[in-house]
Simulated scan of single mutants.
Amino acid sequence: MTALSSPATARNKDLILEVLRAHLPASGLVLEVASGAGEHAVHMAASLPGLTWQPSDPDSQALASIAAWRAQAGTVNLLAPLELDAARPDNWPVRSADAIVCINMIHISPWAATEGLFTGAGRLLPDEGVLVTYGPYLEDEVETAPSNLAFDTSLKSRNPAWGLRRRENVEALAARHGLALHARVAMPANNLSLVFRRSANMNGR
């Protein structure tokens, strides 16, 4: 097994951790959807020892990398990775979670994966449970950085189903599943951390 690494993860992991410290519960199970290589999972689990961290990904190479990072780190609150396809929320191998984290998936996947993410979050999370997403977005009243426009073009050239999503569309999707935007945190390199909170008073399940 090979533990894969990314320079971008080294740059953003502590900044994302600050957001998670502020918004995740002190204890409970955190489901990370689309964990990728697993570097974030290892770092977050080690830094947040009161939480049990459940990494997941649909890709076999990513799952092997997560397992390799886990074996190297020996972090007791980091669980073995699960195969999970965000676009198929009815088949998720997790029945409940106190919080959900999704880093850099929404723009590098078909819209069906984002729909599945919020469907699953609306079903798994308890009242006041949070879903935290991280990545670049388009916004109606915010000028898009040229680098993000170029990134969007590059993504769509690789796969027409990929691309930066409009924050307002994601927010509307969240509302349909009982989740409201609780915090918008500007991050370096024109990224955003969005914190959604589930409420029994919203239209959802």
Score class of each variant (00 low, 15 high):
E141H: 15
N169P: 03
A112D: 13
E128Y: 08
E171V: 14
A64W: 04
W162T: 02
V76I: 12
H182A: 11
E168A: 09
A150H: 13
S56Y: 08
E39R: 09
E115H: 14
F151A: 07
A41S: 13
N104A: 09
A67L: 10
L63M: 10
T75I: 10
N169C: 12
K156A: 08
A62M: 10
S154E: 05
L124C: 04
P110S: 05
L63Q: 06
E39T: 06
Q72V: 08
G163W: 08
V42K: 01
T119K: 13
T52M: 02
A45V: 00
W111M: 07
P93Q: 03
A86T: 07
G74A: 13
L173M: 11
N77W: 04
E115W: 05
D98A: 13
W111S: 05
Y134M: 05
A183E: 13
G135K: 13
A150S: 15
M105H: 03
L51H: 02
L117V: 09
A68L: 12
S96L: 04
A113C: 12
A87L: 02
A161R: 11
A71K: 11
C102V: 06
L51V: 08
G178D: 02
A180R: 12
S47D: 06
G120Y: 10
Q54G: 03
S154H: 07
R88S: 14
F118E: 04
R88D: 13
V94R: 00
L125D: 00
G178R: 00
M105C: 00
S154D: 03
P126R: 08
A121C: 12
M44L: 09
P81Q: 08
D127I: 00
T153C: 09
S65M: 00
V130S: 00
E168F: 07
H177L: 02
G74D: 13
T75N: 02
G129M: 08
G116P: 02
Y137E: 11
L164S: 08
